[in-house]
């Protein structure tokens, strides 16, 4: 009996952990390994060139552009997602009956459950300059087609809209659930003090939810690093390189254009480091 008790964790954990360790560590270590080489898809073996790939990255105009695009993308999507999530979350909590809340929560979950490829296509078609339903009013009024995805100034924002559509509505449901976990007393006390509704949220409710909201922001930051699916389907990094994010550029370097697998790998390693730093930070702050 005692023996069996001490046996269970070993029997249950070892296979899963062994597989995870192999499946996770082999690729990540290998990614670092090939990033020190000059390997290309057409030539299977490369030689070691040390840090040359990393040094080359920082004088690569397209890489610097990709960092800029990725940073813009991060700021746009994280900020808009949180603003929409908090706004709609509060409205759900404040203006909807319990039944309505459940129903709306279900609807708000729909966009994020859709495959990213589907979401990207749905919106790409909606923004189609000739047949799109969103661009239709503009076309009807001005007589000119509106092509947001082919304009370098609006393309990134338009794709970001789809990301915010998926995540903002989803996080609104989470904000609602978080508000529901709060004790009612502080709300009542504030109301007795004649606080206005917005004051209750700005000074009482949201400060109480500071820690989980910051965690949500970090989760979204990491999630936003994978903009690839949306951008690949909607713009392919174009027009020009105006929507080419880091993962899109790594993909095109390693796969489409030149097959420079080592060079692409060095970018992936840098992204991995950025993600790990952000993730360790969340873990330390809030035990998810």
């Amino acid at each position: 009996m005692k023996n069996a008790r001490s046996l269970l964790p070993t029997v249950f954990l070892t296979p899963a952990m062994a597989i995870l360790a192999v499946l996770a560590l082999v690729p990540t270590v290998y990614a670092v390994f090939i990033s020190f080489q000059d390997r290309e898809l057409s030539r299977p073996d490369g030689r070691f060139i040390g840090l040359e790939n990393y040094i080359a990255l920082f004088s690569d105009r397209r890489f610097l552009n990709a960092i800029k695009v990725s940073l813009t993308w991060e700021i746009l999507t994280v900020a808009l997602t949180l603003v929409i999530a908090v706004g709609l979350g509060i409205l759900l909590f404040e203006c909807a009956s319990a039944k309505m809340r459940n129903f709306l929560s279900l609807l708000f979950l729909m966009p994020v459950i859709l495959p990213r490829v589907s979401a990207a296509f749905v919106w790409k078609f909606a923004f189609h300059p000739l047949y799109g339903i969103i661009t239709y009013p503009y076309k009807a009024i001005t007589g000119q087609p509106l092509d947001l995805l082919s304009n370098p100034f609006t393309a990134l924002g338009t794709v970001a809209l789809v990301d915010v559509w998926q995540w903002g509505l989803f996080f609104a449901v989470i904000v609602l659930k978080l508000l529901e976990t709060l004790p009612p007393q502080p709300f009542e006390a504030a109301r007795l003090d004649h606080a206005k509704t917005w004051e209750i949220y700005a000074y009482v409710a949201l400060p109480m939810l500071k820690a989980p909201l910051i965690s949500l922001a970090f989760v979204k930051m990491i999630e936003s690093l994978r903009a690839f699916d949306l951008i690949y389907v909607m713009t392919r990094g174009g027009p020009g390189i105006s929507t080419e994010t880091l993962d899109m550029y790594a993909f095109s370097q390693g796969f489409i254009e030149s097959g420079r697998i080592s060079y692409a790998s060095s970018m992936a390693v840098l992204m991995m480091i950025a993600t790990s730093v952000a993730f360790t930070f969340i873990w330390k702050r809030a035990k998810i």
Partner: peptide, 9 residues
């Protein structure tokens, strides 16, 4: 983990 970092290796 960024998917691109897993996919390339």
């Amino acid at each position: 983990l960024p998917p691109v970092a897993v996919a390339i290796p």
